[in-house]
């Protein structure tokens, strides 16, 4: 397990769970209700195992991660998903896996999760809109799933699709985007150990506004690549359709790797602001590949990242 790891974080650097639970308790103030719900959450935890891939940066408060979201299926306002996503039915849930795979089929979510080891992955998360967060995801590596269903040798890409259910997703009644939301990765990106399917947050089941019951997390790419509420995964040999890329190819590339040197046409990507830091939050420099350069730069060796943005 230690083989590929060259990061400078140590196990001891990871914030102990009790420490961030305490921080949340402080944030919740002296309110007895808040403390009670925290105690409940701690009991109902998913029991995810810590991971050496986690950052040691302090996680953004649960309240902020779950109240400031881009999930256009529920509206374009940042607060819309937290207000509207409760309508979403996430049980039953199945994921269709098809294309160039050896065992295609429609899998029940419970079957997909059987036998996987849930890990806590505390990742930096950088939105294309120049805000960021540190998020304690719970999930498992996408490559575990891909290996289980068997990737055909001719597969080169993985395509993903979000649920489209207008009666539960008010934002999809208007054509803000070309629904259903779709995203894609190159196969080697999908097989990278940093790429996970997340089913939880802060050791609890994933809130609906964050993409329940299962979503992708690719921490070195802008947030919109990390597609939410996945219902279909397709292995293909051609570059998949990606919703934002199709909506505006000049602004949103297929790769969309976090890169402080390649600006969005309408704003700079050189700096970012962490959410939850208040009215006097300072901008911080954006890191190449969102700080995962050592781990993922090799995937793009020899590529002109200004051209393949």
């Amino acid at each position: 397990m230690a083989g590929g790891w060259k990061g400078d974080q140590r196990w001891s650097d990871v914030t102990p769970k009790q420490a961030w639970l305490d921080r949340r308790a402080l944030l919740a103030g002296a309110g007895a209700a808040g403390l009670a719900s925290l105690a409940g959450a701690a009991v109902a935890g998913l029991g995810a195992k810590p991971s050496r891939w986690s950052t040691d940066e302090p996680p953004t408060a649960y309240e902020h991660i779950t109240s400031y979201n881009n999930f256009y299926e529920f509206g374009t306002g940042k607060e819309d998903p937290a207000r509207e996503a409760h309508r979403l039915t996430i049980d039953p849930w199945s994921v269709r896996i098809d294309g160039l795979v050896e065992r295609p089929g429609t899998y029940d979510l419970g079957d997909l999760l059987k036998g996987v080891t849930l890990e806590e992955r505390i990742y930096r998360f950088r939105c294309v809109e120049a805000w960021s967060a540190v998020i304690p995801w719970v999930g498992f590596e996408l490559r575990d799933l891909l290996n289980r269903v068997g990737v055909s040798p001719s597969a080169k890409y993985v395509a993903f699709e979000t649920l489209l259910r207008p009666e539960e997703m008010p934002g999809t009644r208007r054509r803000v985007l070309d629904w259903p939301y779709r995203e894609g990765l190159r196969l080697d990106e999908a097989m990278h150990p940093l790429t996970i399917l997340a089913t939880g947050l802060y050791d609890e089941p994933l809130p609906k506004q964050n993409g329940a019951p299962i979503r992708l997390v690719v921490p070195w790419k802008y947030g919109f690549k990390s597609i939410k509420s996945i219902v279909r995964i397709t292995l293909t040999d051609t570059q998949p359709y990606c919703t934002w890329n199709q909506a505006n190819p000049r602004e949103y590339g297929f790769y969309s790797n976090v890169n402080p040197n390649v600006d969005h046409p309408r704003w700079s990507q050189a700096t970012e602001r962490r959410i939850g830091e208040g009215l006097f939050a300072r901008r911080r420099p954006t890191l190449m590949f969102n700080g995962y350069e050592k781990e993922v730069a090799g995937l793009y060796a020899g590529m002109d990242l200004r051209k393949f943005y």
Partner: peptide
């Protein structure tokens, strides 16, 4: 509101 947390996770942008 911005000072007291009433503007949410990104009070600067909200303000």
């Amino acid at each position: 509101q911005g000072f007291t947390g009433g503007l949410g996770a990104e009070p600067i942008r909200a303000l």
